[in-house]
Design a protein around this nucleic acid. Structure first.
Lengths: 169, 169
DNA sequence: CGGCGGTATATAAAAGTTCATATACTCTTG
DNA sequence: CAAGAGTATATGAACTTTTATATACCGCCG
């Protein structure tokens, strides 16, 4: 499972609580993995049982006591092994892409509306994405920029088709 | 669940067996969803129980009798409703991206090797991806091209760092 | 004619994910 | 001081996905 390994990778930077890890995953899409807290807590337990992390309880300035996890030597080893596995082109698994695949099934005006909304989301996401200091962040930014160009091109095409048709009629 | 809806979308183009649907999903990454047969068969059963598809058994020229599914009126309705839901920026969920996020954790020579392998995969995938006739296919191609550029830039950076260091030493 | 590869379906078990819900503490604001 | 927002942990139930395994038919090659 990748979630555990991503958690180990983050913990290798320093101790953190489940909450911290959840916020980091949510905040940084360049990490390539998203997970809910309800998934992270059991994952940390498994890592603890496996001896890949160690637990220390600490009082929190806010909220209930924090459970801070630190990576162990075994954890680092496990992470390094996972990291060494070869990269593969990801197979897509996203509702938005599936909907996009059936864009042409929509009436032209809905198609345009969907594209316009998606374009807005892309540009918001892009403005939330600072120019990267790591390869993964640079990758994320470049891809968002390209996708924005693509959306603009599709919108332009949809619009020209639309302004054309009244004349054709 | 999106898998069912993608299956409905494909069935809207004409009747198909589970096997057919599986091959199409595997062949066309622009569909935005990947699934194993072991997932598709139960999904088709659920759709059948829900009355979203109808089943007809037919002899196959090869292998056991085919179970061909056709979409029903209820299925089309369900698909259209799903399609109308707003698009969202996908949250990444891919082992390769997670590994990429920790690229800088690798020794420079491993980093270069990973990038080079990934670059090869990208270029193979790109050559397998024909210029698209649909928005989703065009998107897929554009993104692969951009990612290839990114990989080249990262490789160049890694190389220059590498050729520099012997001189620095 | 025996085995291999491709077509085709299927299921069980295990693992992972999502959704809803619950608890509890602290600080700020009205 | 009550209510709400943010921090923080946790779990059960339902559902989905992955992995492994099994079956069966056909044509082709050696």
């Amino acid at each position: 499972m990748s979630l555990s390994h991503v958690l180990l990778g983050l913990l290798a930077r320093g101790p953190a609580s489940g909450w911290d890890l959840g916020s980091r995953l949510a905040k940084d899409p360049a990490l390539g993995w998203n997970a809910e807290l309800a998934q992270i807590y059991p994952a940390l337990r498994r890592l603890l049982r496996g001896g890949f992390v160690a637990l220390r309880r600490r009082r929190s300035p806010k909220g209930p006591p924090r459970r801070e996890y630190r990576i162990t030597a075994a954890g680092r080893r496990e992470f390094r092994e996972w990291l060494a596995e070869p990269l593969e082109i990801p197979k897509p698994h996203a509702a938005a892409l599936a909907r996009l695949a059936f864009l042409e099934r929509k009436a032209p005006e809905n198609r345009l509306a969907s594209l316009t909304l998606y374009r807005t989301l892309l540009s918001e996401e892009l403005s939330r994405t600072p120019s990267g200091t790591t390869a993964a962040r640079r990758r994320r930014r470049i891809l968002l920029e390209s996708e924005l160009h693509w959306a603009d091109a599709e919108i332009a095409a949809a619009l020209s088709g639309r302004t054309l048709s009244p004349e054709v009629r």
